[in-house]
Design a binder for these strands. Structure first.
Lengths: 132, 132
DNA sequence: TTGATATATTCCCATAACGGAATATACTCG
DNA sequence: CGAGTATATTCCGTTATGGGAATATATCAA
């Protein structure tokens, strides 16, 4: 089995930094035409059109014609699965208690490892917990 | 330029569903050895080890030896860039006003499209600028 | 119509993915 | 030591990428 295609999921689509830049540029709800994106990205126009094609296929952006321009707009709800997934880990950097607990558990493990490694040395009490 | 490597960023690393599953399995702070992950994922052991190698390279997981086992643990802080990025779009599904506004704008566009499609019926003035 | 502008599509190529299969390494036990 | 278990690494083949270059399509303008 080869690598999953960029259009196989939103996660794959946004793995590419240029495509995240495009998404960022549409984050204010503004519509932008391709030329504007080309100028901001500094990429050749065909490359930008191809990235937009990927974003279109996963539903992250929508287009509509306006004269000879194509106006792209963000479809933010398609980003929700990413949000929902990452949200499961938010506590690790949001919840003080959780992170303190994490750190404590980790320190406990490291100390255990140290003790084991240093058990042929002098078992000095290194338990100076600086707190916070 | 070819596709960016899976270890080029956390975004690329978590684009792969199996790797997200691994991350999920470590989300509770437990350490797991490779065999446990193999059993849960239903993948051959070498495949799992390779995925773990990717996660290691981007710093998403850390290992430490315990006898002949390798215990893997999550490094949640490495997920923060993803969280920070996606957070910029949270308002779209959190803020009621914003989503209502979005829906309204979209409906307006659809109506415009309808009007245009139906304009071969009655020659209506097509220059109805909705002023958005 | 002809020409110019805006965007998409196609072909090419170097790169690298992912899983399969086989093998290598590391540690434990007897 | 050798056998067995746990994990990592290497080689392979299929697949798809992303940009470059050239071209196709669509729309406007004169």
């Amino acid at each position: 089995m080869a690598r999953a295609g960029t259009t196989s999921s939103v996660f794959n689509a946004i793995a590419e930094p240029r495509r995240r830049e495009i998404v960022d540029m549409l984050a204010f709800g503004d519509e932008r035409d391709v030329t504007q994106l080309v100028l901001k990205l500094g990429l050749p126009q065909p490359a930008v059109s191809k990235h937009l094609g990927v974003l279109r296929k996963v539903g992250l952006v929508a287009v509509h014609k306006a004269g000879q321009r194509r106006l792209y707009r963000l479809n933010p709800q398609e980003l929700k699965p990413v949000h929902d997934w990452i949200q499961n880990f938010e506590r690790f950097w949001t919840d003080q208690l959780a992170s303190i607990k994490e750190a404590a558990e980790q320190k406990a493990k490291q100390c255990a490892a140290h003790d084991r490694a240093a058990s042929n040395h002098q078992p000095h009490s290194k338990e100076q917990d600086h707190g916070h």
